[in-house]
């Protein structure tokens, strides 16, 4: 049964690793829904967060293949219940609306969104939350006209511990 899995990969920061990682999904015909790469809590170590729908057998095998890559230190997979995750969405909207449509200000307030910037022509709202929350805000704002909309990939931390520092320490001491 297909489910949304968050795959987290700790790796050395290396050119080319991204294409190695995406090739592993491609080879199995699995669509990556979102992908985020950033530095993590350990210096020089990158963390990939990849969201994709598949069954558990597939995700287990994919994580196995990921861990085989030379630069991958460790890979994990988690279900939504096992992670704390968020996405950020930005909405660009005509400035007039902010002043002409009182409703918009209420929507922003009620949805816990922030106004990031206000310019002459447009203003930008930022909303961080679960997918359904940014979707809901989108639906509310859409009737007024959205000039641009963009949503980040998922970022997630697991509820359980990931012992990367210990793993790296092991190498240093070996």
């Amino acid at each position: 049964m297909n489910k949304t899995y968050t795959v987290s990969i700790y790796s050395e920061n290396n050119i080319g690793l991204l294409s190695r990682i995406s090739a592993i999904f491609l080879k199995r015909h699995i669509n990556i829904e979102s992908l985020t790469v950033s530095e993590c809590e350990i210096e020089h170590v990158s963390r990939f967060v990849i969201v994709a729908a598949m069954d558990e057998d597939q995700v287990r095998k994919i994580v196995g293949q990921l861990e085989k890559q030379i630069e991958v230190i460790k890979a994990y997979y988690h279900t939504d219940e096992e992670t704390i995750y968020q996405e950020t969405a930005l909405f660009k909207i005509k400035s007039d609306l902010l002043f002409d449509e009182r409703q918009i200000q209420n929507i922003i307030k009620n949805s816990n969104a922030n106004i990031v910037t206000v310019a002459r022509e447009f203003f930008v709202i930022e909303k961080t939350g679960r997918r359904h929350e940014t979707d809901a805000l989108y639906d509310e704002l859409a009737p007024f006209g959205i000039m641009q909309f963009v949503r980040s990939g998922r970022i997630a931390v697991s509820k359980a511990e990931m012992n990367i520092s210990a793993l790296l320490q092991e190498f240093q001491n070996a």
């Binding site: 790796s11 050395e12 030379i70 630069e71 991958v72 230190i73 790296l168 190498f171």
Partner: peptide, 12 residues
């Protein structure tokens, strides 16, 4: 130039 053989890679 100097050569050192590789005996380990921390992520591997």
């Amino acid at each position: 130039f100097s050569y050192k053989k590789c005996t380990g890679i921390r992520s591997y």
